[in-house]
Amino acid sequence: MTATVGQQAQAAARANDVWKVYGSGEAQVIALRGVSAEFERGRFTAIMGPSGSGKSTLMHCLAGLDSVTRGTVQIGETTVTGLGDAGLTKLRRDKVGFIFQQFNLLPTLTAKENILLPLSIAGRKPDPAWYDTVINTVGLRDRLDHRPAQLSGGQQQRVACARALVSRPEVIFADEPTGNLDSRSGAEVLGFLRNSVREHGQTIVMVTHDPTAAAYADRVVFLADGEIVSELIEPTAETVLDTMKKLDTPAEVGN
């Protein structure tokens, strides 16, 4: 399925023939079967697929959170595969941002401190103009001194988005970012992610199983049984849903 690659030079993240195998013998599970994909710079890509399709595994491997069994993963110019803990830590620090389903904010820190945390850890100062832009985009200016427990779910996720954006990473990986949100808060977060791609050229890779969420992306990659089976450019909720339905009946896939 290497036909689905984009323009090589522009890739922010790339997987080359990635295999991921868990366990061994009878208990062996193959989560990824030779996946190759590129995620272009400045685009919003969604990875979709039914439960167990390997979409989360693919994202974890791309982000350097999980090791691959075979094949290589690159982020920008850096080959992720084979990096040790220190290298991976540096990679996550400098090149990758994360947004999680459970927000994962530190309860002891204020919203502002949470947003600036990756920069503080890396010992970098925020670019004030960019920081202002991010805060304005997520619309949290009057909530900056609140602790996570004092924020709604939508607000917490916007803090998490701001945290990912503020260090201007090569690529942001979002794992079901709207999974814990009601539809309105979810729409806000997605709209805001799309804007950051359109207006600021941020690269985002998002794993989701929600067709409405996927419709915010520029491109949707479909996984089934550990393989890339389809792709949509400029998707709408309807086209995504259609493709998903086809995936449920494997005989019709791939034509």
């Binding site: 959170l65 540096k90 994962n104 530190l106 945390l117 850890i121």
Partner: peptide
């Protein structure tokens, strides 16, 4: 555990 994982994910080194 989750918090520590997050800190590691956003770049906290083992030593830190």
């Amino acid at each position: 555990t989750r918090e520590l994982g997050l800190l590691r994910a956003i770049g906290l080194r083992r030593g830190q």
